[in-house]
Computed example of a mutant assay.
Amino acid sequence: METANIISQLHIGSALLALLLAAFVLIVPKGTPFHKRLGYAFASTLLIVNVSAGFMYNLTGRFNLLHVFVMISMGSLLYGMIPAIRRKPANWLRRHISGMTGAALGVWAAGLAELTIRVLPGFMNPSQIIGIAAGIGVVFFFLIGFLIGRFMKTLPENP
């Protein structure tokens, strides 16, 4: 089996698992041992998704705008996980909520973008497909901001 095919299969399998785990992590009560176990599973799976996506160039044959979203996803994941693991700085919980909400909803945005990449090639050229996928990313960016704002309002001022 060729390397590109193995990477694609790893990416798709881990992405499907990340989609499922992201939904559960956002739904279950926060701070519980179950939430933490799900969170670590989600973070590990998303790490695999992002690393494998970094090696995928089959749409354009080179680095493109979708790879920028991979870097944003990794940044969001690290921004959310590192403070939660270290329990530092003082506002670690706010950072965790921001980063992980972005990571969880970001994986759903990526899933919809991926769907456009799989469905639209027969109808559009790669530039148009990337434009649609980027548009989906922008919509989710604002949705993520809205939800982070809602989650933050439930926190005490200095947790």
Rank of each mutant, 00 (worst) to 15 (best):
G39S: 06
T45E: 06
L38Y: 12
N50F: 14
F63D: 02
A18F: 06
I27A: 09
L59S: 01
S52V: 00
A22L: 02
L47H: 05
N58Q: 00
N58L: 11
L20W: 15
T45K: 02
T60R: 12
L59C: 03
L17Q: 02
F63H: 01
Y57W: 06
L59G: 01
F24T: 06
A22P: 05
G39T: 10
L38T: 01
S52L: 00
A41P: 08
Y40H: 12
L16V: 14
F63W: 13
L20K: 04
L17M: 12
Y57E: 03
S44L: 14
L17E: 03
F55L: 13
A53E: 05
L16M: 15
G39K: 08
P29G: 04
K36C: 05
P29C: 08
F42W: 09
N50A: 15
L59P: 00
N64L: 05
Y40P: 01
R37M: 03
S44H: 04
L38S: 10
I48T: 11
T60C: 05
S14K: 13
L47M: 12
A15T: 15
G61C: 00
Y57P: 00
A41N: 11
L20S: 13
A43P: 09
L21E: 04
L21S: 03
L20E: 04
T32C: 01
S52M: 00
G61T: 00
S14A: 15
L20I: 15
N64H: 06
T45Y: 03
K30C: 02
V28I: 05
A18E: 06
N58D: 09
K36F: 13
F34M: 08
L26N: 07
F42R: 04
R37T: 07
G54M: 13
L38N: 06
G13E: 10
P33D: 00
F63V: 10
L59M: 12
T32F: 03
F63P: 01
S14F: 15
G54A: 09
F55S: 10
Y40D: 06
T60V: 04
N64D: 15
S44N: 13
A41W: 00
A43D: 11
V28W: 09
A15W: 09
K30H: 10
I12L: 14
L19A: 08
L46M: 13
Y40V: 12
V51Y: 00
S14Q: 11
V28K: 08
H35C: 03
A53C: 09
S52I: 04
L47I: 02
G54E: 07
L46F: 02
